[in-house]
Computed example of a mutant assay.
Amino acid sequence: MRRRGLRTGLAALTGAALLASCGLTSGSPLVDNVKPGSIGRGEPLKGAHLVITSKNFSENIILGEMIGLAFKAAGASVLDRTNITGSIGAREAVKSGQADAMYEYTGTAWITYLGHTEPIKDPQEQWQAVHDEDLKHGLTWLPPSTLDNTYSLAISQRNNAKYHLKTLSDVAALAKKDPKAVTLCVENEFASRQDGLPGMTKAYGMDIPSSRIQKMDAGIVYTQVNKSGSCLLGEVYTTDGRIKSMNLTVMEDDKGFFPNYNAAPSVYSKAIKKYPAIAGLLNPISAKLTTAVAQELNAKVDVDGQDPHDVAKDWLIKEGFIKEG
């Protein structure tokens, strides 16, 4: 997904390497024949050449495609460079001006990119702090959505019939009472980030040996927890549509360890200075994005197998933001 682990200096070096490895000289033009709906009237971006990007998980790709389609409806020619591996590569693309906009997460920026260790509990204050600090990095954050894609652990209802786990504190207590009972499936990035597994286990006093933690691709985590039973609990994202489709029980973060991860457009400051209409295009979209909406849209990709671009386009049309050309 998105989160922490690297301080700013190392992030810059790693990001540069990721940009090179991800082939940011490539990209596909958006060819959709779309026109303004409730946004983009008068085509305020006519003549603009803009580049969109995203990280490489379904939700962020969907959100990135929404930006591109909004720009396209407003008259811009748009190059699609979504689906960049890892959090840092996508951020560096916008920060360097190789891309103009993406949806980013407030908690990711505060902890991972800006190097803070303590999240700000109030979502709006968290966004404001990120907005203010990132201006000096050449990035402008537009107002956030209420979509909060944070972490937790989940268990299948079948397995939980035995353990009756409800909170992360319950998981910590079980690990202490029966060390052999708790096995975790997590993705590599979560396993190394301070706002991920290391910080969570410290905050909750979870003593889980490394031999009982399996690292794998995020999508496989859900399958392992739901079907094979190789892991009792798995790392999940709270906006993931597979939680509902697989009837997983998500642990409450009862100590409030995980930061707010509200999605908001992060825009190359020079681009929004040149095209201030960008804010008027994206703000209404963000205002409609909620955690429930994200779960629904993510399920269309991760459960039903639809294309993220089509999911984004269908939703924008349904909400009246854009129209078919």
Rank of each mutant, 00 (worst) to 15 (best):
R2A: 07
L10S: 02
L18W: 06
A20S: 13
C22T: 15
T25F: 11
T25A: 14
S26E: 15
V34P: 12
P36H: 05
G40C: 02
E43M: 09
L45F: 01
K46M: 05
I52L: 11
T53F: 00
T53D: 03
S58D: 13
I62M: 08
E65H: 15
I67D: 06
G68H: 08
A70F: 09
V78Y: 13
L79C: 10
D80H: 01
R81Y: 06
G89H: 02
G97I: 03
G97K: 05
Y105V: 05
L114H: 05
E118V: 12
K121Y: 02
Q126N: 11
V130M: 13
H131W: 02
E133L: 14
D134V: 12
K136T: 03
D148F: 04
D148P: 04
A154F: 03
K166Q: 12
T167I: 04
D170S: 02
A175Y: 05
T183I: 10
V186M: 11
E187C: 13
E189F: 01
L197W: 15
P198D: 09
P198C: 03
M200L: 15
Y204A: 07
G205H: 12
D207E: 15
P209A: 13
S210M: 11
R212S: 12
Q214K: 14
Q214N: 10
V221I: 15
V221S: 06
T223P: 00
N226V: 02
K227R: 14
L233D: 08
G234P: 07
V236G: 07
T239C: 11
K244V: 13
M246F: 13
T249E: 15
G256V: 07
Y268L: 00
K273D: 13
A277T: 08
A279H: 04
L281E: 14
A287I: 02
A292T: 15
N298L: 10
V301R: 01
D302A: 14
P308F: 10
F321T: 04
K323W: 06
G325W: 09
